[in-house]
């Protein structure tokens, strides 16, 4: 349980870690949107290079980034298979065997979809690798401040989020402990089919839930006892402000996004040019 890569903060110092967390969130959202406009394999290669560069700048080993894919591997396989066999677009050639039909376009589509998912996860992981949870909630609170005007209690929501995030490590630790306790009583959670395993998790899940409720209760009491309220105006220990490096990061990121959009709308996918270039070289 301790080794979950996705969503784990890497406590090192780097230019990426020092970027304004608000900017990093905006970048991540823009990155996610941009991923849906990548039109060619060359484009995916560019995204990968970009991610690797960011990773190196953040002093995070690229291995850690690739590890984050492990969690979605089943999802990847299922989407790839579905896309491969149930592709609904125009097809040039079709190879049919029994009920399965595959076409070059379907392979192309399935591959691109897979790359898109992988890169989406890897990109968003960089945000959590380089931004601590309190920074994240502060940034979200700051970004959603305008919603205060329409009476949405942004502060309260941010508080709830930060409490929820803070509970996660404790709950993981608790789960670890209870798992050990039940294993010590002979519980077997590693063998058997999936239904057996789910059933074997019950002796862990129930105590963890009970303890989560207990902890939440205690925390609520502690907050009450100190007359804590989220709503009044509070000052922050760490003020967020934009710096020069944020502007530079923005320019680099903008260049990256521009390239992707140029690829789609101006060049219409550079893959064909690359193929042509190779063909003329060969011929």
């Amino acid at each position: 349980m301790r080794d979950i890569a996705f969503g784990q903060y890497y406590p090192v110092s780097s230019p990426i870690h020092r970027l304004d967390p608000r900017l990093k969130i905006i970048f991540t959202v823009m990155y996610i949107v941009t991923m849906f406009f990548v039109a060619s394999y060359a484009g995916y290669a560019l995204v990968l290079c970009f991610l690797l560069a960011v990773c190196l700048a953040a002093h995070v080993p690229p291995k850690a980034m690739f590890k984050s894919i492990k969690g979605i591997i089943i999802l990847l396989i299922i989407t790839a298979i579905l896309n491969l066999f149930f592709y609904a677009g125009e097809t040039s050639v079709e190879w049919t065997w029994w009920i399965f039909t595959v076409s070059p376009e379907a392979i192309d589509f399935a591959l691109k979809m897979m790359f898109r998912l992988i890169l989406l996860i890897m990109g968003t992981t960089i945000l959590t690798f380089t931004t601590g949870t309190s920074e994240l909630t502060d940034a979200i609170e700051s970004l959603f401040k305008p919603l205060n005007l329409i009476k949405i209690p942004v502060r309260d929501i941010a508080l709830i989020m930060s409490i929820a995030l803070r509970f996660i490590p404790g709950l993981i630790e608790e789960t670890d402990k209870i798992m050990m306790a039940q294993k010590a009583r002979g519980a077997d959670m590693e063998s058997g089919n999936i239904f057996k395993r789910i059933k074997a998790m019950l002796p862990v899940i129930i105590p963890v839930f009970v303890s989560a409720f207990r902890k939440a209760d205690e925390l609520a009491d502690a907050l009450d006892a100190r007359c804590y309220q989220a709503s009044p105006k509070r000052t922050k220990m760490k003020k967020m402000s934009f710096a020069w490096r944020d502007l530079i990061a923005f320019l680099i990121f903008a260049a990256f996004v521009t390239l992707i959009f140029l690829d789609k709308y101006l060049w219409g996918g550079v893959d064909q040019y690359i193929v042509q270039a190779f063909q003329s070289l060969a011929g």
């Binding site: 608790e174 402990k177 209870i178 050990m180 306790a181 039940q182 294993k183 010590a184 009583r185 002979g186 019950l202 002796p203 862990v204 129930i206 105590p207 009970v210 303890s211």
Partner: peptide
């Protein structure tokens, strides 16, 4: 092994579930 060596964890009451 686990039948030979019984282990009582800290606050063992938190492991009750049934």
């Amino acid at each position: 092994l686990r039948a030979t060596l019984g282990m009582v964890f800290q606050y063992p009451e938190y492991q009750l579930f049934d």
